[in-house]
Write a protein that binds this DNA or RNA. Sequence first.
DNA 1: ATTATTTTTTAGATTAATCTAAACTTTTAT
DNA 2: ATAAAAGTTTAGATTAATCTAAAAAATAAT
Lengths: 218, 218
Amino acid sequence: MLSYTEENYLKAIYHLSNAGERLVSTNELAETMQTKPASVTDMAKKLSAKNLIAYEKYYGVNLLKSGKQEALQIIRKHRLWETFLVDKLGFTWDEVHEVAEQLEHIQSGLLIEKLDKFLEYPTVDPHGHPIPDPSGKIKEVKQIPLAEFPVYKKCTIRAVKNGSPSFLQYLSKIGIYIDASVSIVDKVEFDGSLEVSIDNKKRVFISREAAQNLMVTG
Amino acid sequence: MLSYTEENYLKAIYHLSNAGERLVSTNELAETMQTKPASVTDMAKKLSAKNLIAYEKYYGVNLLKSGKQEALQIIRKHRLWETFLVDKLGFTWDEVHEVAEQLEHIQSGLLIEKLDKFLEYPTVDPHGHPIPDPSGKIKEVKQIPLAEFPVYKKCTIRAVKNGSPSFLQYLSKIGIYIDASVSIVDKVEFDGSLEVSIDNKKRVFISREAAQNLMVTG
DNA sequence: ATTATTTTTTAGATTAATCTAAACTTTTAT
DNA sequence: ATAAAAGTTTAGATTAATCTAAAAAATAAT
Ligand SMILES: [Mn+2]
Ligand SMILES: [Mn+2]
Ligand SMILES: [Mn+2]
Ligand SMILES: [Mn+2]
């Protein structure tokens, strides 16, 4: 069985490698794990010895099949718990991540099975992120940043890319939420900022930066 | 903040000392913590240094006010989670303890507050054990073992004393549950075993041992 | 009141996760 | 191509939680 720390490393590698697509450097990993590169090297050796990651000295790490599978299970738990916290307990979407960071480590297959059922098998979490199924499979949907969507055309907010509490709070404040129907009504050439219509009811100005962190489908 | 291990020690001391009533010996504590006396001594020193317990060398430990308060908060969380698992997720009462042992360590005041509300402020857990209120207060109710209750008189099952999965499964199997209305219809002088009527519908024989672990009110 | 037994503590190791500082390798710049 | 800079690893400590074996104290038995 994996330790709390090992699980967190696998999850971080999963995200940083973009689901296993590319190598992750020691420094990158140290940054996200809020630790020192020397500690990362130690852990890289340990996870490598357990055949969870591929580690090449001086070049970086990436997930092996079993490591990826473990990471996906932790992400599944994380996102199911976030969904529970929002849908059942009335948390706001900016409050859940920190708590889910703890809950994702609870070890009980039965618990996750029953939680999934209780939530009626959700496919996305409160941030629009897909929830891996019991076998770790993720249903990918093609989404693009609002910043790259054509003007005047309607689209639906599907997910946030950056899920930081401050960004989420800002979105709530200006009235943007998952599944909102929006369209770009004006695009400022100068700085790329947008005027966005939400549900044909309300208009707000958002920065290019913000628009790049809002994922939409047509 | 307390470590996972420190929390478990405080909880164990709480239970073994009967809520702080009497001293707990090193060996006792080692037994329930599934560890060696030498380790207990180390932890006793640490918790004592943090002013959570009173520790007198060679004589034992007991909770100080702050240690008792910490223990009660952990017990509150444990019992709220057990209630959640049974009432909302459909766990059986013999499946919940192990999972609650993990969940009780999740650190989030907001989570417990919201969970409590979601469960509609329960006062007892699935085993009939009282849930401390947010300030740690427990509503004590006078209960006696079924073994000591007068024959022919009706009483209500309120709690189990021993909550081991095998005992709980046995009780389910013979039809005994929390809030069941029972009466002793026969008492065997020889071994103290009882014939019990459940809800005026069903009769079962139980050992004196079992009857001593069923707490009832008249 | 000694002696024997039981209980508890201390001393010294071990393992996981972390750190700092020094050494080493790779990458970038001249 | 060499030197400088950046990134990574190694060596050696540290802290929390644990252990075994030996020493010490308390309790029980003669
Ligand atoms: Mn999250
Ligand atoms: Mn999320
Ligand atoms: Mn329990
Ligand atoms: Mn219980």
